[in-house]
């Protein structure tokens, strides 16, 4: 008798979430199987990659990634356009780092103006990220959500300490919302519950269980993402069925492995390839564990992950 491979059939399904508007809108999620298990069910959408763009020129990025954006990084509008037009980015993540009190402390109004100008320049979906400063983000993201009305952006990140204000702003202006918790699946679920108890549509949340780079706790992120997917699919847990974001670039491009030169550590190999490989490896691991949206920095790493996704789809 011919061997028939057993199929895992799940009761749950990941919500299908569309970001952006018009022809360039991107839909992620929708699968009822573990990542890339298309042979067991449906995987209607591929994971998406958004390119990281900062509102101020990056000073702490290693040269190998900074030099790629050297001609455009003084202006977020040029930078975003470069990603879309030259690097073929399907989505942009605009990180308002310059609003952080320790990093320029730009005002919410200035940040909103940047958001507006970037949105006017691109037609792909936009993820609007604060500076990860709990108090400042509430001001910045509220104004940003307002000026982005009508563009179906992703606003983030809402955390336990500030989710009420940010979720209210996302809800008022019809955006999606990133709910971030710190590598704790139970707190991730709890935050989703609390956000939906505000009246926020649970199908408009993106989960950020907190990223980490290869060698710096990636296995924690991997496990939490995997466990979220299992709860969503096998336990049909409606509070855990949102797509997951992996904010990869930010965590990778600050570790010593992507900046230590080969003169000092020749056994680590060429620095340029090492950095690209590190970001690509980290991102690949996360799409395998359940991430549907990645935020990345190096175009070659993004291209490698894109090819990897093509292979697996």
């Amino acid at each position: 008798m011919a061997f028939t491979p057993p199929k895992e059939v799940n009761t749950g399904k990941v919500y299908s979430v569309t970001m952006g508007t018009g022809e360039k809108a991107v839909t992620i999620g929708g699968e009822n199987v573990l990542p890339f298990h298309g042979f067991e069910g449906v995987v209607p959408n591929r994971p998406a990659i958004a390119f990281d763009v900062l509102d101020i020129a990056p000073v702490d990025w290693p040269d190998s990634v900074r030099e790629i954006y050297a001609g455009v990084s003084d202006d977020p509008v040029k930078w975003a356009k470069y990603c879309v037009e030259t690097l073929n980015a399907k989505a942009i993540a605009l990180r308002l780092s310059g609003t952080h009190p320790d990093n320029g402390n730009r005002s919410a109004a200035e940040a909103a103006d940047t958001v507006k100008r970037v949105l006017d320049a691109i037609n792909v979906p936009l993820i609007i990220l604060g500076s990860n400063h709990v108090e400042k983000d509430t001001d910045v993201l509220v104004k940003a959500a307002e000026v982005a009305k009508g563009r179906n952006c992703i606003i983030g990140k809402a955390q336990e300490a500030n989710y009420k204000t940010i979720a209210a702003a996302a809800m008022a202006h019809d955006h999606l919302l990133i709910a971030m918790s710190e590598l704790d699946i139970n707190l991730s679920k709890q935050l989703n519950i609390m956000i939906t108890q505000l009246g926020f549509n649970k199908e408009k949340i993106i989960i950020d269980p907190m990223c980490s780079a290869l060698g710096y706790g990636l296995e924690y992120t991997y496990t939490v993402m995997e466990r979220i997917r299992l709860a969503a699919l096998t336990q049909n847990d409606v509070t855990m069925q949102q797509p997951i974001v992996g904010d990869v670039g930010m965590y990778v491009w600050k570790i010593k492995e992507v900046s230590a030169s080969e003169d000092i550590l020749p056994e680590w190999g060429a620095l340029k390839e090492r950095g690209i490989a590190w970001e690509a490896q980290t991102a690949s691991a996360l799409v395998m564990s359940g991430a549907e949206l990645l935020i990345m920095r190096h175009p070659e790493a993004a291209a490698a992950v894109d090819a990897f996704i093509n292979e697996l789809m």
Partner: peptide, 11 residues
Amino acid sequence: KTLYAHSYLEM
């Protein structure tokens, strides 16, 4: 059988 969260009774 279900994932714990502080508000599990409210779900």
